[in-house]
Each structure stands twice: as C-alpha cells, then as structure tokens.
Amino acid sequence: MFQYLVKRILMLFPLFLGITLITFVVIHLAPGEPVEMQSAMNPKVSAAARQRLREFYGLDKPLYVQYGRWLSHLAKLDFGRSFAPDNRPVIDKISERIPITLSLNVIALILEFGLALPIGIIAAVHRDTLVDRGISVFVFLGFAVPTFWLALLCMYFFGVLHPVLPISGLHSLGSEKLSGFGRFADLARHLVLPISIATFGSLAGLSRYMRSTMVEVLSQDYITTARAKGVKERVVIYKHALKNALLPVITLLGFSLPGLIGGSVIFETIFAIPGMGQLFYQGVMARDYPLVLGILVIGACLTLVGNLLADLGYAVADPRIRHGKG
C-alpha cells in the first residue's frame, strides 16, 4: 500500500511537467498575442508603441526562453504578472475569484450529490414504473434545457414579474450597511437562482449513473441470497446493495475536485458572478498567457490530486483493489 502511494506520487512530477509544456505550447499556437489584442485596430497605437509593449511583456524573446523563465518562476510558486493592462500578479487575480467559485461549486456539489443519489436509488428500486419514468423526464429536462434560457426565464419570473429574488450579482446595492447576518442573507438570496439552476442542470448525469449501478447491483446473486434469507427490503437496498453501488461514486467525487475551481462561463456571465470561468475566458480571449497558464496549472494540480485521492479512496473502500494491486 505504501509503495503504491509513493509510486503514484513520484509519477505526478513528470506528468505535471508534461502538462505545463503542452499547455504552454498550445496557448502560444493560438493566433494573436496579448499586445495584438490590446492594440489592434487602434489608430493611436504605432508600431513603436507595439514593440515597446512586446518588450515590456518579454514577448520579443524566443519561446523556449519565455518557457524557461516562466517555469523557473513557477518553481518559486510565482505565477508572474498578468499581461492585461492592469499588470497585476496572477495569483491576486485568481485568489480574489476562487472563494466565490469554490463556495458556489461546493454548495452545488453537495446539493447535486444529495439530490442525485437518492433520485438514482429511487429510480433503480422502482425500475420501469411511472416513478422511474417521471424521474427520468425530470432530470433529462434539466439536462436538456439550455441553462441561459432557463436562467433568463427564472430571472424574469422571480426578479421582474414577482420581485422576490435579486436578478444577478452577489450583493444588493447598500448591503454594506447591513449587519453581518443581513449581509449573509443578502448573499444567500443572490445565490438561490444560480445554485438551483446549476443543480437542476447537473442532476441527470449523476442520478442516471447511480441508477444504473444500483440496478446492476440489485440483479446480483448475493442480493437474491439476502432476499431469500428473508432480510427486509429496506435493509437489502440500503445496506447490502448501496454499499457496493456507491463504489464508483468515489471516483466521480475525485473527478469533480478540479471542477471545483472551474466555473461555467455562460453561467457566470448570465448571473454576473465574478468567478473563475469568466476570468479564464477573458484570459484566453485576451491571450493573457500568464493568467491562462496559472489557472491551468492549478487545475492540473487539482486533477492530479483528485485522481490520486479517488484511487486511494477506492483502494480503501474496495478490498478487491487493495489486495489485487499494491
């Protein structure tokens, strides 16, 4: 077990280096560069000014020099400064947006698992009945409806026609004057629509997954044995079957770790939430290399760690893996 862990951790380093190299090359392959995006079609910008900007960002150096420089800074955990006109440290730009994205995603993830797992189980238990079909229709509706459309409808209904919820953003104007609890309630109200809609849209995947593993487990021999022994149906389902059906869910949880700092561009744009999705999108559109690389590096780390944790969790939970490999 320990050897397995060490091997897995050592494997992460070359993998990480490879990821940085590939992302660095790919982002530079995209046409255009930061200076261009800032100055194109602007009559005020002369060729000399453009050259000056390129030198300022170090874009006049060969690519391998730029990569080496960036990597050596990264080794010191310095993500560099953004190539946007604000020229702020990348880490500042990321860290001011991570808290909101992270909390939104964590709440949405808890809701998603909290709702999707029971839905999946119920659907599996009542397989091919009206309940199952109803649930399918409901979750697929959430999956199929375009988020932005549903979001706009909800904004119009709850914000304009029956103004009970704020339309977009995170705080009301004047919320600075409220007490601590008032501010929290204000924030919570702003999050109702985005989180509800995000959760609704993501129920389908997980609940269908849960349903299919549950159906599979329920058809196995040991379940039949349990039922034959006269074990109560509740116990069969929630004790015998669920334990095994939940195993693949651990992997899914691990996979969702990097997703926690990623945001959806469309979603954040519609709800005017200053999150990571928007930041990344703007970074890509402006060819803000250090920012894009910074976000990708953090994402890559989380993916690697997430995979590792998932594997470990699996090994802990499933004796077959623990003893089979190792």
Partner: peptide, 20 residues
C-alpha cells in the same frame, strides 16, 4: 455614481426592468 459590471446584455435588461 455606481458602475455595475453585468457581462450579459439580457441580464442587464432584466436589471433595468427590475429597477436595480
């Protein structure tokens, strides 16, 4: 003078109609 950042035109229109 308060300058709100609302990246989507439709959302902005909702905010206008909503009086915010």
């Amino acid at each position: 003078y308060i300058y709100r950042i609302i990246p989507d035109n439709s959302t902005m229109y909702m905010e206008l109609k909503g009086g915010t």
